[in-house]
Nucleic acid binder design. Structure first.
Lengths: 172, 172
DNA sequence: GCACCTATTTATAAAAC
DNA sequence: TGTTTTATAAATAGGTG
């Protein structure tokens, strides 16, 4: 329970901070989505945790809103060159987040913290092999996507999926 | 007063929509700010009203967060395409195969057959999210590779790693 | 650590001014 | 139209399993 007026100041305890970050980020994304729905607006929210992990929400997607902001005379010179994809949760996909997360747990077996620990034990050759494993999973996932698109799944009217994912590649 | 459960659907009345947009935008900015304060995180929120007016919040400012997002491989200028390289394993590495497989089981939790079954339950949106999870794993693995190459230091900056593979780029 | 719970704070829709 | 009020819904900190 909220025991007393919630103080807005830095949380020192790491796990508590992480919990709060996750909860409030989800709340923030939901509020952004509600705003977009109710007001027919566009919005993007980009968060960077203290650990440096990036999470972003966008309606209709992150890029159009960011580009709109940048092309409107705002923004520094754009800096490019890195290459990691970010977790972009969008629209209705967001509503299914915890359900989806649960199912994905079934596939991947563990959560981020555990990967961190387990991966920390791997050596170079094992990392190489892990990549092959990841490749394998990705192939299976792509096959599943084909199956759905071909008419076997329930979610065929999901439309605004970003260009970076397993699914849109199949749709090109 | 909020007279009843607030419906999240488009508001047709223009002035009412504008009022709601303003209030919710303020609320959204405040929540983003609180998140940053409490979790020592960075965040930006960019909104575009139906009329096309842009409002943005950023901590520490909009641009650093946007650039961070863009420089992490997101954004329009990212090159896309199938880009996963599999590394051929050589002799001595080969000898370690089953040991490696065991360790990778620790990371990935399941074997091929189980992935097949579990992935078969996923819907489109869940496949999308799974890709984010895969990216996350890959990122952790890349950090580990850097750690090894750098000689044991933890959590080196991973920005120099290429897009195609966890390990090989480090070896260039 | 994650999912669920719930007491309490916080956000906000509409009224009142 | 804008600001303030206020009744109610929504978010969430901390607890539990």
């Amino acid at each position: 329970m909220v025991r007393r007026k919630v103080e807005i100041k830095a949380i020192e305890n790491i796990s508590k901070r992480h919990t709060t970050f996750t909860k409030r980020r989800q709340g923030l994304f939901k509020k952004a989505k509600d705003l977009c729905t109710k007001c027919e607006a566009e919005a993007t929210v980009i968060t960077v945790s203290k650990a440096g992990n990036i999470f972003a929400f966008g309606h209709p997607a992150v890029d159009p809103v960011v580009n709109r902001y940048l092309s409107n005379g705002n923004g520094d010179e754009r800096v490019h060159g890195g290459n990691w994809m970010v977790v972009a949760m969008e629209d209705e996909e967001m509503q299914l987040l915890s359900k989806a997360e649960r199912k994905i747990q079934k596939v991947m077996g563990k959560g981020r913290q555990e990967w961190n620990l387990a991966i920390g034990d791997l050596e170079i050759n094992e990392l190489d092999e892990m990549e092959a494993v990841i490749e394998d999973i990705k192939r299976i996932a792509a096959a599943r996507a084909v199956e759905i698109v071909a008419g076997g799944g329930k979610d065929q009217d999901v439309k605004c999926i970003g260009k970076d994912s397993i699914v849109p590649y199949l749709r090109r």
